[in-house]
Design a binder for these strands. Structure first.
Lengths: 226, 226
DNA sequence: GTGAATATATTAGCATGGTAGTATACAAAA
DNA sequence: TTTTGTATACTACCATGCTAATATATTCAC
Protein backbone atom coordinates (compact mmCIF):
# COMPACT_ATOMS: atom_id res chain seq x y z
CA UNK A 1 0.00 0.00 0.00
CA UNK A 2 1.39 3.33 -1.08
CA UNK A 3 0.07 6.47 0.61
CA UNK A 4 0.08 9.90 -0.97
CA UNK A 5 1.80 12.08 1.55
CA UNK A 6 0.32 15.20 3.10
CA UNK A 7 2.47 17.80 4.84
CA UNK A 8 2.34 17.81 8.61
CA UNK A 9 2.58 21.59 9.09
CA UNK A 10 2.46 21.78 12.85
CA UNK A 11 -0.89 20.06 13.05
CA UNK A 12 -1.53 17.45 15.72
CA UNK A 13 -0.80 13.85 14.91
CA UNK A 14 -4.51 13.16 14.81
CA UNK A 15 -5.13 15.86 12.24
CA UNK A 16 -2.21 14.70 10.18
CA UNK A 17 -3.45 11.13 10.05
CA UNK A 18 -7.00 12.25 9.34
CA UNK A 19 -6.00 14.48 6.43
CA UNK A 20 -3.69 11.89 4.99
CA UNK A 21 -6.25 9.12 5.03
CA UNK A 22 -9.08 11.32 3.83
CA UNK A 23 -7.10 12.53 0.89
CA UNK A 24 -5.97 9.04 0.02
CA UNK A 25 -9.47 7.64 0.19
CA UNK A 26 -10.98 10.37 -1.95
CA UNK A 27 -8.22 10.22 -4.52
CA UNK A 28 -8.61 6.44 -4.54
CA UNK A 29 -5.07 5.71 -3.48
CA UNK A 30 -6.89 3.65 -0.88
CA UNK A 31 -9.36 1.49 -2.78
CA UNK A 32 -12.98 1.02 -1.77
CA UNK A 33 -13.19 -2.31 0.03
CA UNK A 34 -9.54 -2.35 1.03
CA UNK A 35 -8.95 -3.24 4.65
CA UNK A 36 -6.81 -1.30 7.07
CA UNK A 37 -5.66 -1.77 10.61
CA UNK A 38 -4.70 0.81 13.22
CA UNK A 39 -1.34 -0.86 13.67
CA UNK A 40 -0.48 -0.79 9.99
CA UNK A 41 -1.30 2.87 9.47
CA UNK A 42 0.41 3.84 12.71
CA UNK A 43 3.62 2.27 11.49
CA UNK A 44 3.42 3.78 8.02
CA UNK A 45 2.84 7.28 9.36
CA UNK A 46 5.20 6.89 12.33
CA UNK A 47 2.71 7.71 15.04
CA UNK A 48 1.16 5.61 17.75
CA UNK A 49 -2.17 3.86 17.44
CA UNK A 50 -4.08 6.47 19.42
CA UNK A 51 -4.19 9.27 16.85
CA UNK A 52 -4.79 6.72 14.11
CA UNK A 53 -7.71 5.33 16.02
CA UNK A 54 -9.13 8.81 16.51
CA UNK A 55 -8.81 9.55 12.83
CA UNK A 56 -10.53 6.24 12.03
CA UNK A 57 -13.45 7.18 14.25
CA UNK A 58 -13.93 10.47 12.49
CA UNK A 59 -13.64 8.96 9.03
CA UNK A 60 -16.13 6.29 9.98
CA UNK A 61 -18.54 8.94 11.14
CA UNK A 62 -18.20 10.65 7.78
CA UNK A 63 -18.87 7.39 5.98
CA UNK A 64 -15.44 6.91 4.46
CA UNK A 65 -14.47 3.97 6.64
CA UNK A 66 -16.41 1.16 8.21
CA UNK A 67 -15.24 -0.25 11.49
CA UNK A 68 -16.20 -3.69 12.66
CA UNK A 69 -15.24 -4.02 16.32
CA UNK A 70 -12.65 -6.66 17.00
CA UNK A 71 -12.54 -7.57 13.31
CA UNK A 72 -11.15 -4.75 11.31
CA UNK A 73 -11.71 -1.62 9.30
CA UNK A 74 -12.32 -1.26 5.58
CA UNK A 75 -12.57 1.63 3.18
CA UNK A 76 -16.26 2.06 2.41
CA UNK A 77 -17.65 0.99 -0.90
CA UNK A 78 -19.21 3.76 -2.95
CA UNK A 79 -22.93 3.80 -2.23
CA UNK A 80 -24.98 5.20 -5.11
CA UNK A 81 -28.04 5.78 -2.94
CA UNK A 82 -25.99 7.94 -0.65
CA UNK A 83 -24.60 9.73 -3.68
CA UNK A 84 -28.14 10.51 -4.86
CA UNK A 85 -29.08 11.91 -1.50
CA UNK A 86 -25.96 14.05 -1.37
CA UNK A 87 -26.55 15.42 -4.83
CA UNK A 88 -30.16 16.26 -4.04
CA UNK A 89 -28.92 18.19 -1.05
CA UNK A 90 -26.28 19.99 -2.99
CA UNK A 91 -28.54 20.90 -5.91
CA UNK A 92 -31.17 22.26 -3.57
CA UNK A 93 -28.81 24.31 -1.46
CA UNK A 94 -26.64 25.52 -4.28
CA UNK A 95 -29.56 26.99 -6.18
CA UNK A 96 -30.59 28.91 -3.10
CA UNK A 97 -27.03 30.04 -2.42
CA UNK A 98 -26.50 31.22 -5.96
CA UNK A 99 -29.70 33.22 -5.85
CA UNK A 100 -28.23 34.97 -2.84
CA UNK A 101 -24.94 35.47 -4.65
CA UNK A 102 -26.77 37.16 -7.52
CA UNK A 103 -28.32 39.62 -5.09
CA UNK A 104 -25.01 40.65 -3.65
CA UNK A 105 -21.49 39.36 -3.73
CA UNK A 106 -18.51 40.95 -1.97
CA UNK A 107 -16.00 42.68 -4.20
CA UNK A 108 -12.88 41.06 -2.76
CA UNK A 109 -14.22 37.63 -3.64
CA UNK A 110 -14.95 38.68 -7.21
CA UNK A 111 -11.22 38.96 -7.60
CA UNK A 112 -10.62 35.56 -6.09
CA UNK A 113 -13.27 33.99 -8.27
CA UNK A 114 -11.67 35.45 -11.41
CA UNK A 115 -8.24 34.25 -10.33
CA UNK A 116 -9.58 30.81 -9.70
CA UNK A 117 -11.16 30.69 -13.16
CA UNK A 118 -7.89 31.69 -14.77
CA UNK A 119 -6.09 28.88 -13.00
CA UNK A 120 -8.76 26.45 -14.14
CA UNK A 121 -8.00 27.39 -17.74
CA UNK A 122 -4.33 26.69 -17.19
CA UNK A 123 -5.01 23.30 -15.65
CA UNK A 124 -7.27 22.44 -18.53
CA UNK A 125 -4.59 23.28 -21.10
CA UNK A 126 -1.97 21.41 -19.13
CA UNK A 127 -4.35 18.51 -18.57
CA UNK A 128 -3.67 18.63 -14.84
CA UNK A 129 -7.00 17.15 -13.90
CA UNK A 130 -6.35 16.50 -10.24
CA UNK A 131 -5.46 20.10 -9.63
CA UNK A 132 -8.46 21.16 -11.69
CA UNK A 133 -10.61 19.04 -9.41
CA UNK A 134 -9.32 20.95 -6.41
CA UNK A 135 -9.89 24.30 -8.10
CA UNK A 136 -13.43 23.24 -8.90
CA UNK A 137 -14.10 22.59 -5.22
CA UNK A 138 -12.46 25.87 -4.30
CA UNK A 139 -14.59 27.74 -6.85
CA UNK A 140 -17.79 26.57 -5.25
CA UNK A 141 -16.45 27.15 -1.76
CA UNK A 142 -15.69 30.77 -2.68
CA UNK A 143 -19.29 31.31 -3.69
CA UNK A 144 -20.55 29.90 -0.41
CA UNK A 145 -18.08 32.07 1.46
CA UNK A 146 -19.32 35.13 -0.39
CA UNK A 147 -22.80 34.39 0.94
CA UNK A 148 -21.51 33.72 4.44
CA UNK A 149 -22.51 30.10 4.16
CA UNK A 150 -19.15 28.42 4.30
CA UNK A 151 -20.18 26.02 7.04
CA UNK A 152 -22.85 24.69 4.74
CA UNK A 153 -20.25 24.02 2.10
CA UNK A 154 -18.22 22.05 4.63
CA UNK A 155 -21.21 19.88 5.41
CA UNK A 156 -21.90 19.30 1.75
CA UNK A 157 -18.27 18.37 1.22
CA UNK A 158 -18.66 15.81 3.97
CA UNK A 159 -21.79 14.18 2.69
CA UNK A 160 -20.44 14.43 -0.84
CA UNK A 161 -17.36 12.33 -0.25
CA UNK A 162 -18.69 9.40 -2.26
CA UNK A 163 -19.54 11.65 -5.15
CA UNK A 164 -16.04 13.07 -5.08
CA UNK A 165 -14.62 9.58 -5.43
CA UNK A 166 -16.80 9.10 -8.48
CA UNK A 167 -15.51 12.30 -9.98
CA UNK A 168 -11.96 11.12 -9.47
CA UNK A 169 -12.87 7.93 -11.31
CA UNK A 170 -14.30 10.01 -14.14
CA UNK A 171 -11.23 12.18 -14.30
CA UNK A 172 -9.07 9.09 -14.50
CA UNK A 173 -11.05 8.22 -17.61
CA UNK A 174 -10.80 11.85 -18.73
CA UNK A 175 -14.54 12.37 -19.09
CA UNK A 176 -16.04 15.82 -19.66
CA UNK A 177 -13.64 18.30 -18.11
CA UNK A 178 -13.81 21.02 -20.74
CA UNK A 179 -17.51 21.65 -20.22
CA UNK A 180 -17.02 22.09 -16.52
CA UNK A 181 -14.66 25.01 -16.86
CA UNK A 182 -16.92 26.69 -19.40
CA UNK A 183 -19.88 26.30 -17.04
CA UNK A 184 -17.95 27.78 -14.17
CA UNK A 185 -17.19 30.81 -16.24
CA UNK A 186 -20.86 31.23 -17.11
CA UNK A 187 -21.93 30.84 -13.50
CA UNK A 188 -19.45 33.51 -12.40
CA UNK A 189 -20.71 35.74 -15.20
CA UNK A 190 -24.29 35.36 -14.05
CA UNK A 191 -23.31 36.29 -10.50
CA UNK A 192 -21.52 39.42 -11.67
CA UNK A 193 -24.55 40.36 -13.81
CA UNK A 194 -27.01 39.67 -10.98
CA UNK A 195 -28.84 37.33 -13.29
CA UNK A 196 -30.67 35.05 -10.87
CA UNK A 197 -32.88 33.35 -13.40
CA UNK A 198 -29.96 32.36 -15.57
CA UNK A 199 -27.88 31.09 -12.68
CA UNK A 200 -30.55 28.67 -11.60
CA UNK A 201 -30.58 26.99 -15.02
CA UNK A 202 -26.82 26.85 -15.04
CA UNK A 203 -26.57 25.21 -11.64
CA UNK A 204 -29.17 22.65 -12.54
CA UNK A 205 -27.23 21.78 -15.66
CA UNK A 206 -23.86 21.89 -13.97
CA UNK A 207 -24.80 19.55 -11.18
CA UNK A 208 -26.83 17.18 -13.28
CA UNK A 209 -24.37 16.51 -16.04
CA UNK A 210 -22.82 13.61 -14.17
CA UNK A 211 -26.05 11.68 -14.06
CA UNK A 212 -25.64 9.39 -17.03
CA UNK A 213 -22.15 8.18 -16.21
CA UNK A 214 -22.82 6.31 -13.01
CA UNK A 215 -23.82 3.04 -14.57
CA UNK A 216 -20.91 3.13 -16.93
CA UNK A 217 -18.48 3.62 -14.06
CA UNK A 218 -20.14 0.89 -12.13
CA UNK A 219 -19.56 -1.51 -14.97
CA UNK A 220 -15.98 -0.37 -15.30
CA UNK A 221 -15.18 -0.75 -11.59
CA UNK A 222 -17.81 -3.08 -10.13
CA UNK A 223 -15.65 -3.95 -7.12
CA UNK A 224 -15.74 -0.35 -5.88
CA UNK A 225 -19.53 -0.17 -5.56
CA UNK A 226 -21.98 -1.44 -3.03
CA UNK B 1 -22.38 19.36 38.09
CA UNK B 2 -25.36 17.06 37.70
CA UNK B 3 -25.67 14.99 34.55
CA UNK B 4 -28.94 13.71 33.14
CA UNK B 5 -28.40 10.03 32.72
CA UNK B 6 -28.78 8.15 29.48
CA UNK B 7 -29.19 4.36 29.38
CA UNK B 8 -26.14 2.41 28.28
CA UNK B 9 -27.99 -0.29 26.34
CA UNK B 10 -25.07 -2.36 25.16
CA UNK B 11 -23.48 0.51 23.32
CA UNK B 12 -19.75 1.06 23.50
CA UNK B 13 -18.36 3.27 26.25
CA UNK B 14 -17.56 5.91 23.65
CA UNK B 15 -21.12 5.97 22.35
CA UNK B 16 -22.47 6.11 25.86
CA UNK B 17 -20.34 9.09 26.80
CA UNK B 18 -21.12 10.83 23.52
CA UNK B 19 -24.86 10.44 23.88
CA UNK B 20 -24.82 11.47 27.50
CA UNK B 21 -22.84 14.63 26.90
CA UNK B 22 -24.73 15.55 23.76
CA UNK B 23 -28.05 15.24 25.48
CA UNK B 24 -26.85 17.21 28.47
CA UNK B 25 -25.47 20.00 26.33
CA UNK B 26 -28.58 20.34 24.22
CA UNK B 27 -30.91 20.22 27.18
CA UNK B 28 -28.67 22.78 28.87
CA UNK B 29 -27.86 20.62 31.86
CA UNK B 30 -24.34 21.53 30.81
CA UNK B 31 -24.29 25.30 30.45
CA UNK B 32 -22.74 27.14 27.54
CA UNK B 33 -19.31 28.31 28.67
CA UNK B 34 -18.96 25.71 31.38
CA UNK B 35 -15.62 23.96 31.39
CA UNK B 36 -15.10 20.23 31.49
CA UNK B 37 -12.13 17.94 31.77
CA UNK B 38 -11.63 14.41 30.49
CA UNK B 39 -10.73 13.26 33.98
CA UNK B 40 -13.84 14.69 35.57
CA UNK B 41 -16.30 13.20 33.07
CA UNK B 42 -14.48 9.88 33.11
CA UNK B 43 -14.96 9.65 36.85
CA UNK B 44 -18.59 10.71 36.76
CA UNK B 45 -19.48 8.17 34.08
CA UNK B 46 -17.18 5.45 35.44
CA UNK B 47 -15.17 4.91 32.29
CA UNK B 48 -11.57 5.61 31.46
CA UNK B 49 -10.34 8.79 29.86
CA UNK B 50 -10.01 7.27 26.40
CA UNK B 51 -13.70 6.99 25.45
CA UNK B 52 -14.33 10.38 27.02
CA UNK B 53 -11.61 11.89 24.93
CA UNK B 54 -13.05 10.30 21.80
CA UNK B 55 -16.49 11.64 22.59
CA UNK B 56 -14.99 15.10 23.18
CA UNK B 57 -13.37 15.02 19.75
CA UNK B 58 -16.65 14.22 18.07
CA UNK B 59 -18.59 16.83 20.00
CA UNK B 60 -15.94 19.42 19.17
CA UNK B 61 -16.26 18.53 15.51
CA UNK B 62 -20.00 19.09 15.74
CA UNK B 63 -19.46 22.45 17.40
CA UNK B 64 -20.84 21.58 20.82
CA UNK B 65 -17.50 21.64 22.60
CA UNK B 66 -14.37 23.66 22.12
CA UNK B 67 -11.07 22.07 22.95
CA UNK B 68 -7.98 24.11 23.67
CA UNK B 69 -4.96 21.80 23.68
CA UNK B 70 -3.19 21.64 27.01
CA UNK B 71 -5.68 24.10 28.47
CA UNK B 72 -9.09 22.60 28.64
CA UNK B 73 -12.46 22.06 27.10
CA UNK B 74 -15.58 24.18 27.38
CA UNK B 75 -19.18 23.85 26.27
CA UNK B 76 -19.57 26.14 23.25
CA UNK B 77 -21.44 29.37 23.57
CA UNK B 78 -24.50 29.68 21.36
CA UNK B 79 -23.46 31.42 18.15
CA UNK B 80 -26.33 33.29 16.49
CA UNK B 81 -24.53 33.53 13.17
CA UNK B 82 -24.21 29.79 13.09
CA UNK B 83 -27.86 29.51 14.02
CA UNK B 84 -28.81 31.70 11.06
CA UNK B 85 -26.81 29.59 8.70
CA UNK B 86 -28.32 26.39 10.04
CA UNK B 87 -31.83 27.74 9.73
CA UNK B 88 -31.23 28.87 6.16
CA UNK B 89 -30.09 25.37 5.37
CA UNK B 90 -33.03 23.77 7.03
CA UNK B 91 -35.63 26.08 5.45
CA UNK B 92 -34.19 25.51 2.03
CA UNK B 93 -33.98 21.75 2.29
CA UNK B 94 -37.22 21.26 4.12
CA UNK B 95 -39.22 23.05 1.46
CA UNK B 96 -37.72 20.82 -1.18
CA UNK B 97 -38.30 17.70 0.91
CA UNK B 98 -41.90 18.56 1.62
CA UNK B 99 -42.56 19.11 -2.05
CA UNK B 100 -41.34 15.56 -2.56
CA UNK B 101 -43.50 14.34 0.29
CA UNK B 102 -46.55 15.88 -1.36
CA UNK B 103 -45.85 13.95 -4.52
CA UNK B 104 -45.70 10.63 -2.77
CA UNK B 105 -45.47 9.45 0.77
CA UNK B 106 -45.35 5.81 1.88
CA UNK B 107 -48.47 4.49 3.56
CA UNK B 108 -46.78 2.91 6.57
CA UNK B 109 -45.32 6.28 7.52
CA UNK B 110 -48.70 7.96 7.30
CA UNK B 111 -49.67 5.84 10.26
CA UNK B 112 -46.55 6.80 12.17
CA UNK B 113 -47.06 10.45 11.43
CA UNK B 114 -50.64 10.32 12.72
CA UNK B 115 -49.52 8.51 15.86
CA UNK B 116 -46.84 11.07 16.47
CA UNK B 117 -49.36 13.90 16.13
CA UNK B 118 -51.66 12.25 18.64
CA UNK B 119 -48.83 12.01 21.15
CA UNK B 120 -48.00 15.66 20.58
CA UNK B 121 -51.52 16.56 21.63
CA UNK B 122 -51.16 14.58 24.81
CA UNK B 123 -47.86 16.26 25.67
CA UNK B 124 -49.40 19.63 25.05
CA UNK B 125 -52.30 18.92 27.41
CA UNK B 126 -49.97 17.52 30.03
CA UNK B 127 -47.53 20.38 29.51
CA UNK B 128 -44.67 17.91 29.05
CA UNK B 129 -42.64 20.26 26.89
CA UNK B 130 -39.39 18.32 26.82
CA UNK B 131 -41.12 15.24 25.47
CA UNK B 132 -42.99 17.44 23.02
CA UNK B 133 -39.67 18.77 21.82
CA UNK B 134 -38.52 15.22 21.08
CA UNK B 135 -41.76 14.40 19.27
CA UNK B 136 -41.31 17.52 17.18
CA UNK B 137 -37.90 16.34 16.05
CA UNK B 138 -39.27 12.88 15.40
CA UNK B 139 -42.12 14.33 13.32
CA UNK B 140 -39.75 16.03 10.95
CA UNK B 141 -37.46 13.02 10.83
CA UNK B 142 -40.38 10.84 9.75
CA UNK B 143 -41.05 13.12 6.82
CA UNK B 144 -37.42 12.95 5.71
CA UNK B 145 -37.51 9.20 6.07
CA UNK B 146 -40.61 9.02 3.90
CA UNK B 147 -38.64 10.76 1.17
CA UNK B 148 -35.60 8.56 1.67
CA UNK B 149 -33.61 11.52 2.86
CA UNK B 150 -32.96 10.55 6.42
CA UNK B 151 -29.21 11.16 6.16
CA UNK B 152 -29.96 14.76 5.31
CA UNK B 153 -32.04 15.07 8.44
CA UNK B 154 -29.13 13.78 10.48
CA UNK B 155 -26.85 16.42 9.03
CA UNK B 156 -29.39 19.13 9.70
CA UNK B 157 -29.74 17.90 13.26
CA UNK B 158 -26.00 18.22 13.62
CA UNK B 159 -25.67 21.73 12.29
CA UNK B 160 -28.84 22.68 14.14
CA UNK B 161 -27.53 21.89 17.59
CA UNK B 162 -27.29 25.54 18.59
CA UNK B 163 -30.82 26.19 17.45
CA UNK B 164 -32.02 23.26 19.51
CA UNK B 165 -30.45 24.78 22.60
CA UNK B 166 -32.36 27.97 21.87
CA UNK B 167 -35.58 26.06 21.58
CA UNK B 168 -34.95 24.46 24.94
CA UNK B 169 -34.46 27.93 26.38
CA UNK B 170 -37.74 29.00 24.85
CA UNK B 171 -39.53 25.98 26.20
CA UNK B 172 -38.21 26.73 29.65
CA UNK B 173 -39.94 30.07 29.31
CA UNK B 174 -42.99 28.30 27.88
CA UNK B 175 -43.11 30.34 24.68
CA UNK B 176 -45.39 29.37 21.79
CA UNK B 177 -45.87 25.63 22.00
CA UNK B 178 -49.53 25.46 21.09
CA UNK B 179 -49.00 26.92 17.63
CA UNK B 180 -46.33 24.38 16.83
CA UNK B 181 -48.61 21.39 17.26
CA UNK B 182 -51.32 23.04 15.20
CA UNK B 183 -48.83 23.73 12.42
CA UNK B 184 -47.61 20.15 12.45
CA UNK B 185 -51.14 18.97 11.97
CA UNK B 186 -51.61 21.28 9.00
CA UNK B 187 -48.34 20.20 7.44
CA UNK B 188 -49.31 16.56 7.74
CA UNK B 189 -52.71 17.40 6.25
CA UNK B 190 -51.09 19.08 3.26
CA UNK B 191 -48.91 16.01 2.66
CA UNK B 192 -51.90 13.70 2.74
CA UNK B 193 -53.77 16.01 0.34
CA UNK B 194 -50.77 16.33 -2.00
CA UNK B 195 -51.04 20.08 -1.65
CA UNK B 196 -47.52 21.23 -2.52
CA UNK B 197 -48.30 24.91 -2.75
CA UNK B 198 -49.86 24.99 0.68
CA UNK B 199 -47.05 23.03 2.30
CA UNK B 200 -44.44 25.51 1.17
CA UNK B 201 -46.22 28.38 2.90
CA UNK B 202 -46.63 26.30 6.02
CA UNK B 203 -42.98 25.36 6.22
CA UNK B 204 -41.90 28.92 5.72
CA UNK B 205 -44.14 30.02 8.56
CA UNK B 206 -43.29 27.08 10.77
CA UNK B 207 -39.57 27.57 10.54
CA UNK B 208 -39.62 31.33 10.71
CA UNK B 209 -41.77 31.80 13.75
CA UNK B 210 -38.80 31.71 16.09
CA UNK B 211 -37.17 34.70 14.46
CA UNK B 212 -38.28 37.46 16.77
CA UNK B 213 -37.37 35.77 20.03
CA UNK B 214 -33.62 35.60 19.66
CA UNK B 215 -32.85 39.01 21.01
CA UNK B 216 -35.15 38.55 23.92
CA UNK B 217 -33.44 35.32 24.88
CA UNK B 218 -30.09 36.91 24.49
CA UNK B 219 -31.07 39.57 26.98
CA UNK B 220 -32.45 36.98 29.33
CA UNK B 221 -29.34 34.77 29.23
CA UNK B 222 -26.47 36.92 27.96
CA UNK B 223 -23.82 34.61 29.41
CA UNK B 224 -24.91 31.78 27.10
CA UNK B 225 -24.27 33.69 23.87
CA UNK B 226 -21.19 34.51 21.92
C1' DG C 1 -12.78 -37.57 4.24
C1' DT C 2 -15.94 -34.86 7.24
C1' DG C 3 -17.44 -32.36 11.03
C1' DA C 4 -16.86 -30.78 15.59
C1' DA C 5 -13.90 -29.10 19.16
C1' DT C 6 -9.98 -26.50 20.39
C1' DA C 7 -5.93 -23.62 20.00
C1' DT C 8 -3.89 -19.58 17.92
C1' DA C 9 -3.71 -15.13 15.83
C1' DT C 10 -5.63 -10.80 14.92
C1' DT C 11 -8.37 -6.90 15.80
C1' DA C 12 -10.52 -2.71 17.86
C1' DG C 13 -11.93 -1.19 22.56
C1' DC C 14 -10.32 0.46 26.68
C1' DA C 15 -7.15 1.70 30.69
C1' DT C 16 -3.32 4.08 32.23
C1' DG C 17 1.17 6.44 32.55
C1' DG C 18 4.30 9.86 30.68
C1' DT C 19 4.98 14.40 28.16
C1' DA C 20 4.80 19.05 26.75
C1' DG C 21 2.33 23.09 26.68
C1' DT C 22 -0.30 26.53 29.38
C1' DA C 23 -2.19 29.14 33.23
C1' DT C 24 -1.78 30.50 37.91
C1' DA C 25 0.16 31.69 42.34
C1' DC C 26 3.65 33.69 44.59
C1' DA C 27 7.96 35.68 45.61
C1' DA C 28 11.55 38.87 44.52
C1' DA C 29 12.95 43.10 42.47
C1' DA C 30 12.09 47.70 40.96
C1' DT D 1 2.29 49.25 43.93
C1' DT D 2 3.79 47.12 39.76
C1' DT D 3 6.47 44.13 37.16
C1' DT D 4 9.11 40.16 36.36
C1' DG D 5 10.82 35.59 37.14
C1' DT D 6 9.95 31.00 38.88
C1' DA D 7 7.74 27.13 40.80
C1' DT D 8 3.58 24.51 40.75
C1' DA D 9 -0.52 22.54 39.13
C1' DC D 10 -3.38 21.25 35.51
C1' DT D 11 -4.64 19.97 30.87
C1' DA D 12 -5.08 17.50 26.51
C1' DC D 13 -1.97 14.73 23.57
C1' DC D 14 0.15 10.62 22.70
C1' DA D 15 2.30 5.89 23.57
C1' DT D 16 1.65 1.47 25.05
C1' DG D 17 -0.09 -2.63 27.43
C1' DC D 18 -4.08 -5.37 28.38
C1' DT D 19 -8.79 -7.31 27.29
C1' DA D 20 -12.55 -9.35 24.91
C1' DA D 21 -14.45 -10.57 20.66
C1' DT D 22 -13.87 -12.66 16.32
C1' DA D 23 -11.78 -15.26 12.51
C1' DT D 24 -8.75 -18.80 11.13
C1' DA D 25 -5.98 -22.87 11.56
C1' DT D 26 -5.33 -27.20 13.73
C1' DT D 27 -6.45 -31.29 15.98
C1' DC D 28 -9.18 -35.07 16.91
C1' DA D 29 -13.14 -38.29 16.68
C1' DC D 30 -15.74 -40.92 13.74
Amino acid sequence: MELLSVPKRGASAREYVYETLRRNIILLALKPGQSLTEQEIAEKLSVSRTPVREAFIRLAQEGLLETYPQRGTVVSLIDLERVDEARFMRRTLEKAILRLACESFPQELVFELRSNLALQEVCLEERNFLRLFELDEEFHRLIYRGCKKERIWDLIAQINADFRRIRVLKLSLGIGVGEVVQQHREIAGAIFDHNAARVEELVEMHLRQNDPDFERLREEYPEYFK
